[in-house]
Computed example of a mutant assay.
Amino acid sequence: MITPVRRVAALCALAAALAPLTACGTAQDTRAVRTTDSATAPAAGARNAAPTPSRTPAAPSRTPAAPSRTPTLAPGPAGLTPVFRNGPRTAGKTVALTFDADMTADQGPRAAAGEHFDNPGLITALRTLKVPATVFMTGRWAEEYPDQARSLGRDPGFEIANHSYSHHAFTDDCYGLPTVPEDAMRTDVERAYTAFRKAGVPSAMPYFRFPGGCYDQRALRAVSGLGVTAVQWDVVSGDAFATDADAVARQVLDGVRPGSVVVMHCTRSAAPTTEQVVRTVVPELRRRGYRFVKVSELIATAGGRR
């Protein structure tokens, strides 16, 4: 398909060539645990700022402060990055649709040859249906589609969150994705925020989704100084590489519960049915009494710190 930093610290996944984009784990895992789609944490002692780019360009190695009211989870044991999967089940029928805008660092030639890693039709559908959404974007995607990144980042209906720069895995054996060395993990996250800023995204959120959803304690520790919350999900849409939109819609509708986070993708070449799925599930969930919210609202409801 989870606290801000005083020192203003540096700054939906396509496994190499068509590998699935899903996995999840827990902050207590000692190795990566996988499910079926894509999902980090605030630093110890961090408050009222987040590793998000601002309108004023920052030094390449630092991340400007983010809005002070952005909710994040408190760090886990020993300051580990916290992980968020879903909101409270008893706080009303809310659901967050999240979309991974995946593009790996080496897919430029494929984009140049005509492959579409964007999905304007999906974004139009969300706007038409007035559905707020959280887009987990890779820095490479923002570089390839800067106008779209800027448009999403400045649209109050969306919030942009971090999905790494390279979309390389933060653990070994993550669906065939190349692996980020441990000493480069933090830099990869920071580099994505830099790409967002350069594209014109004014305030990316302090939320991070691990590529492939794969993480372990080592990865949580590596990014723990960034003040981000790792965001996973509790509903796997199954839209990655799917060709049966009705089957994907049924899977979403069967899985959603109050406070759910649904993981989908914003890449036409890898998730061609997602627009149709959204046009099916949104009116049905509304008929069932659900209200659509962004991840930030769910985290706030769950007691996130501001």
Rank of each mutant, 00 (worst) to 15 (best):
G25K: 11
P156E: 09
V135C: 04
D100N: 14
D102M: 04
Q28E: 14
L126R: 04
A161T: 05
S38T: 14
A142C: 14
A43C: 13
A74P: 15
D37A: 10
D102E: 14
D118A: 14
L129D: 04
T35Q: 10
W141N: 08
N86F: 04
L73K: 12
T104K: 04
T138N: 10
T72Q: 11
T63L: 13
A161I: 05
A27V: 14
A59S: 13
N119P: 03
P82V: 02
T98H: 01
P64Y: 00
G108V: 02
A66E: 07
G87V: 05
A125D: 00
T81L: 05
A32T: 08
Q107I: 01
L21E: 15
H116L: 15
N162R: 03
G45F: 03
A125M: 02
P156F: 10
E143C: 03
G139K: 07
L129Q: 10
R85N: 11
Q107R: 12
A41M: 06
T81A: 15
P132S: 09
D37S: 09
G153C: 06
R110M: 12
H116W: 12
L126M: 09
W141A: 09
F84Y: 10
C24T: 14
R150M: 03
A78E: 15
T81K: 03
A46V: 12
I123H: 11
P156M: 08
T36C: 13
M103C: 06
F136W: 06
T40M: 13
T72N: 07
T124Y: 01
F158D: 07
Q107G: 01
A32V: 07
A50S: 07
F84Q: 05
P75S: 04
Q107V: 09
S151M: 07
S151N: 05
A142P: 10
L21F: 12
T124H: 08
T134F: 05
F158A: 03
P71H: 04
A44K: 08
T40F: 14
R31I: 00
A111F: 07
E143A: 07
P60E: 12
T26V: 07
S38P: 10
N86A: 12
W141F: 15
P20C: 05
P88G: 05
R150T: 02
T36E: 12
D29M: 10
A19P: 05
E115F: 13
C24A: 13
P120G: 00
L80P: 06
P60V: 13
A142K: 12
L129S: 01
P132A: 09
R140G: 05
A44R: 08
S61P: 00
M103G: 03
A27F: 06
T134P: 06
A39C: 14
C24Q: 11
L21S: 15
D147V: 00
G153F: 03
R89G: 13
R85H: 09
S38V: 14
D29I: 02
V131S: 08
D37R: 01
